[in-house]
Design a protein around this nucleic acid. Structure first.
Ligand SMILES: [Mn+2]
Ligand SMILES: [Mn+2]
Ligand SMILES: [Mn+2]
Ligand SMILES: [Mn+2]
Lengths: 227, 227
DNA sequence: AAGTTTTGTTAGATTAGTCTAACTTTAATA
DNA sequence: TATTAAAGTTAGACTAATCTAACAAAACTT
C-alpha cells in the first residue's frame, strides 16, 4: 500500500499531465512546485516511484504515469471528488470549503467506503467545481472546456467549472452570483479594455478577460431539469 | 496540532482510564500493548506527551490524562463514534465493519466537518456498538453496564452494547440475532454447566457465561419507539 | 561556440516514529 | 531480607520524508 505522500505525488503528476490538454509528461521542478516541496525532495521520490513501476522516469528526464500509476492516481482523484460532493451536497459546505477537507479524506483506505459513498450520492458525474469524477472502472475522458472568453456578445451559456480553486477566487465569483450549472449571459465586451459585462440571475457585473479565462462554460444552456 | 500518532496515544490512555471503571491511570506496558508498539516506543512518547502537558507522568510511574489531554482524547473518541454511526446508518455498513474505517476517519481535522456530521446524523447519543458518543461540550458520563449474567431466569432485557469489538465476536453474536436495542430473553440457566439459554426474535440459542459477560444490557425493555 | 541561466541531482543533516538489546527500578516471593 | 521477576528506560540503529548547499546537465542567448 502507498503512503499518503506517495499518493500525493501520483495525484500531482495526474493533474499535471492527464488533466492538462496537450501535455504528456512533467518536469521535476513542476512536480515539486505542485506539491510545495523542494526539487531535491521530489527528485528522490521520483526515483522511488520509478522503482515501484508507478511512473516512467530517467535521470534528468521528464516523468509520466505508467498504466498502473495512472489507475492509482485516478482512484485518488475519484475519492477526492466524491468527498467534495458529499461535503457540498449532504453537509452544506460551500464551494470554496470542500477542497481542503477532501485533501485529507481522499487518503482513507476502504474500497467498500468509496463504493457505498458513490451510491449514497447517486453516482454523481461531476464534483461541486464542475470537475469530472473518474468512474470506478477507470473511465475518465477529459473534456476540453470553453472559457467565458469564447462566448460571443449577447450569447447565454452555462457555467460548468473553474480553473482556479483558491478560496479567494471562489468567494469572488460567488459574489458575482456565478455558480456551477447556472446560466450566464455575456452582455457586452469592451475589447480595448479587455473587460466583459455579464449578467447572472438578473445581476450585472464587469469582469476582466483574465478572470473570464478561469471560468469554464458550455455553449448550450441546459433545459431545466425535470422534477 | 497533534500528529496522528500522538492522537492515538491519547485515545489509548482515555480508553484505559476514563472508560474503565475503577481505574485512574495506566502503566507504560499496558499503553504499549493497547497501541501494538513496544514498551520502549511508548516510554519515549509518554515523555513527549508530558512535555506538551497532555498527560501526567513521572519516570517509572503511571500515566493519566491532564484536563487538556482528556478534552482532546474525548474529541477523537467523539469523531470515531460519529463516523461509525455514519457508516452504519447512512452507508449500510455492518456492526463489525465500521471500527476499522473509523480508525482512519477519526483523524480528519475539521471542526466544521464534525459539527455538520453530527447534525446530519441527528445528534446521536450512541454509536452502533451502543457506546456513548461524547458531546461537543465535553459532556460524557460513563454508565456502569450490566451484563447478560446479571439477568435472572425468565427476564427480558435490552441489549445496549458489547465489550468485544472484534469482527469474529460481532459476527458470532449477529448469527444469534443479537443486536443493539433489541429485546433478549434469558429462558433458562444451567449453573452447573455455566450455560444460558436465550431467545431473540423468537430464535433460541445456548451461550456460555463467558460470552454472556461481553454483552451489555439494561434491565427494562424500552417501549416500542413511536413512528 | 562560449557563456549564462534553468533544471535537476547528490550528499549530508534533521525530525518523527519505530525497533532491539542492554540496563535500571520497582514489585513480588521465597 | 535477599533473590527473582516484572515493569520501565536508555542507547543506538533504521526508515520515510523533508531541507540546504554544492554540484552537474540541459537549454537558451548572444
Ligand atoms: Mn479539490
Ligand atoms: Mn473539485
Ligand atoms: Mn470503534
Ligand atoms: Mn464503537
Amino acid at each position: 500500500m502507498l503512503s499518503i505522500t506517495e499518493e500525493n505525488y501520483l495525484k500531482a503528476l495526474f493533474r499535471l499531465t492527464c488533466e492538462e490538454v496537450g501535455k504528456t509528461d512533467a518536469g521535476t521542478n513542476e512536480i515539486a512546485a505542485q506539491l510545495d516541496v523542494k526539487p531535491a525532495t521530489a527528485s528522490d521520490m521520483l526515483r522511488k516511484l520509478k522503482e515501484k513501476k508507478l511512473i516512467e522516469y530517467e535521470k534528468y528526464g521528464k516523468s509520466m504515469l505508467t498504466r498502473r500509476g495512472k489507475k492509482m492516481a485516478m482512484e485518488i482523484v475519484r475519492k477526492h471528488r466524491l468527498w467534495e460532493t458529499f461535503l457540498y451536497e449532504k453537509l452544506g459546505f460551500t464551494w470554496d470549503e470542500v477542497h481542503e477537507v477532501a485533501e485529507q479524506l481522499e487518503h482513507i483506505q476502504s474500497q467498500k467506503l468509496i463504493e457505498r459513498l458513490n451510491t449514497f450520492l447517486g453516482n454523481p458525474k461531476y464534483d461541486p467545481h464542475g470537475d469530472l469524477i473518474p468512474q470506478a472502472d477507470g473511465e475518465f475522458k477529459l473534456i476540453e472546456k470553453k472559457t467565458l472568453n469564447d462566448i460571443a456578445e449577447g450569447e447565454t451559456c452555462l457555467v460548468v467549472g473553474v480553473s482556479d480553486n483558491s478560496a479567494e477566487f471562489l468567494q469572488y465569483v460567488d459574489g458575482l452570483s456565478i455558480a456551477i450549472h447556472r446560466p450566464l449571459k455575456v452582455v457586452s465586451r469592451k475589447p480595448f479594455d479587455a473587460i466583459l459585462e455579464i449578467e447572472v440571475k438578473g445581476k450585472r457585473s464587469a469582469i476582466s478577460a483574465r478572470l473570464a479565462d478561469h471560468i469554464f462554460v458550455s455553449r448550450e444552456v441546459k433545459k431545466a431539469a425535470k422534477m
